[in-house]
Nucleic acid binder design. Structure first.
Length: 290
DNA sequence: TGCCAGGAAGTCC
DNA sequence: GGACTTCATGGC
């Protein structure tokens, strides 16, 4: 991997184990727009990013060398060796290989805690396009203006302080449905420091998973998503409907309970659970397994 | 129309 | 402590 400052953009060459489309569209990210093939506008980190990939070259159009190094490389998890991760998983069994092969360009984004907290509370019993709509409404109404692209205005994801001003009715108006009261509770507990990002980061995985479930509407699955995508806990293994389908197909001969799957994943994938989960999840969803 | 969606809480026994 | 129901909303 090599970073170069070109005349009009920042370029990263010789990039490996990375596919922009797969990484954005695998179901972990809810704020991006496809401009053309392998070219996207990403809304994250209180700014927009116009980014494009051609083969193993990445172009950052509206950014700086400093920003690419300090913000976007960590965001896209580009400093991590995915070759080692895939090798470890492939040596663990011969069942996950097809998913890794097909989705080999997926990286786990390092997104922001509060945004993931709110987003995955919304995600329960909802399809991804609709989650994206609600997150966009929240940002438009409570976030700050961060720029315009193709005549459309974009807004940052709001801070806990600002979003805590939203009422249950506000969230209902933004079509959050029965999750509205959960969102109010989440904001309240973050602002009051009852739920503190830094404390969660210092806890071990089990403690953090238990702690985050003090928020109403967060159970084991949503909690694991927040830990994986918003707190960098790569051992987190969220099990949703797609994971139940693919795990049953690959690893079990008969229907098993979620608890048993969770225990299996912990024992089998260990600290690499999050990567295994994302390859399998995207593979299962994209191929509409069972 | 009925069924399902990156589920969790409430209620029943 | 497990199984069943309910909770908004939208896409198919």
């Amino acid at each position: 991997m090599r970073i170069i400052a070109d005349k009009t953009c920042i370029v990263i060459e010789e990039i490996e184990h990375f596919d922009l489309k797969q990484t954005l569209e695998c179901g972990q990210c809810f704020r991006y727009e496809c401009i053309s093939d392998n070219e996207y506008l990403v809304i994250a980190k209180n700014r927009t990013l116009h980014i494009k990939q051609e083969d193993n070259i990445l172009f950052f159009y509206n950014s700086t060398m400093e920003e690419v190094q300090s913000i976007w490389c960590p965001y896209f998890d580009l400093n991590r060796d995915y070759g080692t991760i895939k090798k470890w998983l492939n040596e663990r069994d011969n069942l996950i290989g097809e998913a890794i092969e097909q989705k080999s360009g997926v990286r786990i984004l390092n997104q922001e805690f509060f945004e993931m907290l709110i987003t995955f509370i919304i995600s329960q019993n909802k399809q991804i396009p609709h989650i994206m709509q609600i997150v966009e409404r929240i940002s438009e109404r409570f976030g700050e203006y961060i720029g315009e692209w193709n005549g459309k205005k974009y807004y940052s994801f709001p801070t806990p302080e600002v979003l805590s001003k939203a009422t249950e009715q506000d969230f209902l108006d933004m079509k959050a449905g029965f999750r509205a009261k959960y969102l109010v509770d989440a904001c309240k507990k973050v602002v009051s420091q009852e739920l503190c990002e830094n404390e969660l980061r210092q806890m071990n995985y089990g403690e953090a998973l238990e702690k985050i479930q003090i928020v109403k509407g967060i159970g084991e699955k949503v909690g694991n998503c927040i830990l994986l995508f918003g707190l960098g806990r790569r051992e987190a293994f969220p099990i949703d409907v797609w994971m139940i389908r693919i795990l049953e197909r690959l690893y079990f001969d008969e229907p098993v309970k979620k608890d048993e799957m969770q225990a299996f994943a912990k024992e089998h994938f260990g600290e690499y659970g999050g990567y295994a989960q994302q390859y399998l999840f995207y593979y299962a969803r994209d191929n509409r397994v069972k």
